[in-house]
């Protein structure tokens, strides 16, 4: 961990810093090319995109909300936030991970193919996770599950030995608790 105020201050050995996941909610002007510009910003600077969701959220105000999950050292995350802020089309950037009131949710569709005891167990696990069955055949289920991303990870992990054959995830969405809005 870098010393916050070392005597020889400017050791910028970012390699030694730990990488963290971070989720940014970005409110942008909804215009052609804005997503390209945002993704290009990540690509050009070698930042990771772990997940990305985007949709128009206010037709009258012409705004879209982008939720982007990325990974980096604290220094890189600081740069990402500053670069996102810098885009002309950006209205607000919120670091949801840092915000104690940050909520993150994801939706996944999970196809499990199995028979007999495994099929029963899959249903039981789904019940514990409050996943809904939205399609079934004699040898398969499609579950719909929502929750924090790590809950979905966990669910998928448990389903894998029970016959998981396909997984489709929306990517992370976020909002904060309380009355304040982005």
């Amino acid at each position: 961990m870098p010393d916050p105020q070392p005597a020889s201050v400017y050791d910028l050995d970012h390699k030694a810093e730990v990488e963290n996941l971070a989720t940014f909610a970005v409110l942008v002007d909804n215009e052609p090319g804005v997503l390209h510009r945002l993704v290009g910003l990540f690509a050009a600077r070698g930042y990771n995109i772990e997940s990305l969701t985007v949709a128009e959220t206010d037709r009258n105000a012409h705004t879209s909300r982008v939720t982007i999950v990325t990974r980096g050292t604290p220094h890189v995350l600081g740069q990402i936030e500053a670069q996102l802020e810098k885009m002309v089309s950006t209205r607000h950037v919120q670091d949801v991970t840092r915000d104690p009131n940050g909520l993150e949710r994801e939706l996944a569709l999970v196809k499990v193919k199995s028979l007999g005891a495994e099929r029963v167990e899959a249903l039981r696990v789904a019940d514990i996770f409050r996943a809904r069955v939205i399609d079934t055949t004699h040898e398969s289920f499609v579950f719909e599950i929502t929750g924090a991303p790590n809950k979905i990870d966990k669910f998928a992990e448990l389903m894998r030995p029970l016959g998981l054959v396909e997984l489709s995830r929306t990517g992370v969405l976020s909002i904060t608790r309380g009355a304040d809005a982005l």
Binding site: V9, Y10, D11, L12, Q79
Partner: peptide
């Protein structure tokens, strides 16, 4: 060389672009 750049100094950085500040060199 960044790790030998003004090693004994405190740095004040004035810039109109927030992403310039702390980009290459940490400032106080």
């Amino acid at each position: 060389r960044l790790d030998a750049f003004a090693p004994t100094s405190r740095k004040i950085h004035v810039d109109i672009d927030a992403s310039s500040i702390g980009k290459n060199v940490r400032c106080d």
